[in-house]
Every structure is written in structure tokens, then in C-alpha cells.
């Protein structure tokens, strides 16, 4: 059976479905007997979900977040009509 260290090193490949069938079986056998690794896998998956959510407000920021002077500086750099 694989060790806890090996399970954690294979975790990303396991979650992405990249393990060979025999490796997957060994991974899941370990999870069947190791509650610490079950907890680790769950918290790793939660971490992965939390990352984009932490920046979700980036998609809907207030226009007032941008200083007017910055807008003007950018506009002054635009190509001018001949």
C-alpha cells in the first residue's frame, strides 16, 4: 500500500484523473484506511475551490475604484486622429 507521503504527492494527478488504474486503486485503498489522508484530500479540494472565490469581486468592481487621473493619463496616450 502507498504511504501518506506518496498519496499527497500523487494527489493533484488523482484529482485530475491522471493516475493509471492500478495507482488509482492503491490511492483509494489508502484512503479507505487513513482518516488523516481523507481529511487532507478534503481540505486540499476546499482550498482549490476557495482560491477563485476569494477574487470573485474582481469581476464586478466599482468604477470609482479607478482614479480619474489614471483614466485621463491612459486616454492621453491613445493614438490621435491625423
Amino acid at each position: 500500500m502507498i504511504t501518506c507521503r506518496e498519496l499527497i504527492s500523487f494527489l493533484a494527478d488523482y484529482l485530475e484523473g491522471n493516475l493509471a488504474p492500478t495507482e488509482r486503486v492503491a490511492f483509494e485503498e489508502h484512503l479507505g484506511v487513513c482518516p488523516d489522508c481523507v481529511n487532507y484530500v478534503e481540505s486540499y479540494k476546499t482550498t482549490h475551490k476557495a482560491i477563485p472565490l476569494a477574487y470573485a469581486d474582481e469581476n464586478d468592481p466599482a468604477p470609482s475604484e479607478v482614479p480619474e487621473e489614471l483614466i485621463q493619463a491612459i486616454l492621453e496616450a491613445r493614438p490621435k486622429r491625423e
Binding site: 504511504t3 501518506c4 507521503r5 506518496e6 499527497i8 488523516d36 489522508c37 481529511n39 487532507y40 478534503e42 481540505s43 476546499t46 475551490k49 476557495a50 482560491i51 472565490l53 476569494a54 477574487y55 470573485a56 469581486d57
Partner: peptide, 27 residues
């Protein structure tokens, strides 16, 4: 090859807290 100090599982309400300002700030 056991993990040192594995500690308790994350609390069961964590998934619901992921949208909260507090957890977003921690992340």
C-alpha cells in the same frame, strides 16, 4: 511516512463560508 501533526478535519461549515468576506480575506 505519516504526516506530522495532522490535526482535526476542517469544520463542516467551511464550504458554506467560502463566499464570506472573512474567508475570502484569509485566502
Amino acid at each position: 511516512d505519516h504526516r506530522d501533526n495532522p490535526g482535526p478535519a476542517w469544520r463542516s461549515t467551511v464550504e458554506q463560508e467560502l463566499h464570506s468576506k472573512e474567508v475570502c480575506s484569509l485566502v
